[in-house]
Structure formats: C-alpha cells, structure tokens
Simulated assay, not measured.
Amino acid sequence: MKWTSILAIYALFWVFSAFLLLPFGVRTHEEAGVEKVPGQADSAPATFRPGRLMARATLLATLLCGLYVLNYTQGWITAQDLNLFGEPPAGADYRKIDRPA
C-alpha cells in the first residue's frame, strides 16, 4: 500500500472519529450552571473545546488506521470472511432480469 493511500485513509478515519466524538463530554449551560445568552438554544454547549476534540480524534484515528493497515498487511479479515450469505446457488444467473412484457 502506498503512503499516499494510507494518508487518505487516515484522513477519512480522522473525520469519522471527529464526528463520532462530537457529542461526548458536552454539557449544556443548565448542566454547567452558567447563564445563557438571550436567544440561545437550550441544547447549545456551554463550552466548545476544539483542541481537545482534535486530540481525541487524532488518537482514535491513529488507532483505527493502524489496525486497518495491519489487517491489510497481515490479512486477518478478508472479503471472503465477510460473505455472510454463502455461495450463490448453482446455475443462478443474476444478470438476467425478468421484466414483464
């Protein structure tokens, strides 16, 4: 696998991790005991820490990308392992589509 492919996969894992981690650790103004700004939504976070979110997303993305690359090189899980329905029946031709006349 080329290093550019690994970098692209890491970027995808990073964005996925950032969106996955967004709701964790968020406290509303009511939960934090802080006064709200007039017109503010009740569900708005009291504080937003993008640095903490980026650090957590970086750690999670590094772990997931590392596992992905190791699986790619070691072949722990292959496409054949993910075939949940078994082989198609003998003689089945799925390219033919029966359409009403």
Rank of each mutant, 00 (worst) to 15 (best):
W3V: 13
W3D: 05
T4H: 13
S5R: 12
S5F: 01
I6E: 07
I6P: 01
I6H: 05
A8T: 13
A8E: 11
A11L: 14
L12I: 12
L12C: 09
L12N: 07
F13S: 10
W14T: 07
F16C: 13
S17A: 15
S17R: 03
S17Y: 01
A18Q: 06
A18M: 15
L20H: 01
L20Q: 01
L21P: 01
L22G: 00
L22V: 09
F24V: 14
F24A: 14
G25R: 10
G25H: 08
G25M: 09
R27V: 02
T28G: 11
H29Q: 02
E30F: 01
V34K: 15
E35R: 13
E35G: 00
K36M: 12
K36R: 15
K36I: 02
V37Y: 05
P38D: 13
P38F: 13
G39W: 01
Q40P: 04
Q40S: 03
Q40L: 09
Q40W: 06
A41I: 00
A41P: 02
A41V: 00
D42W: 00
D42Y: 00
D42M: 03
A44M: 10
P45I: 03
A46N: 04
T47C: 01
T47K: 10
T47P: 00
F48Q: 06
F48R: 04
R49Q: 10
R49S: 10
P50V: 12
G51M: 07
G51S: 06
G51D: 10
R52P: 00
L53E: 14
L53C: 08
L53T: 08
M54T: 14
A55D: 05
A55F: 12
R56G: 14
R56W: 08
R56Y: 08
A57T: 03
A57K: 03
T58R: 02
L59S: 14
L60Y: 06
T62L: 11
L63F: 15
L63E: 11
C65Y: 00
G66T: 11
G66L: 07
L67R: 05
Y68C: 05
V69C: 03
V69G: 00
V69E: 01
V69F: 13
L70Y: 12
N71W: 06
N71F: 05
N71T: 07
N71C: 08
T73V: 08
T73P: 00
G75P: 06
G75C: 07
G75S: 09
W76F: 11
W76D: 01
I77G: 01
I77L: 15
I77K: 09
I77D: 04
T78F: 01
A79P: 07
Q80D: 15
L82K: 04
L82Q: 04
N83K: 13
N83P: 00
L84P: 03
L84A: 15
F85R: 10
F85A: 07
F85G: 01
F85I: 07
G86T: 05
E87R: 13
P88M: 03
P88E: 04
P88N: 02
P89H: 05
P89K: 08
G91Y: 01
G91L: 02
G91V: 07
G91I: 04
A92I: 15
D93I: 02
Y94S: 10
Y94M: 04
Y94Q: 10
R95P: 03
R95A: 13
R95W: 07
K96W: 11
I97C: 09
I97M: 14
D98Q: 08
D98E: 09
D98T: 10
R99C: 06
P100K: 09
A101N: 11
A101T: 09
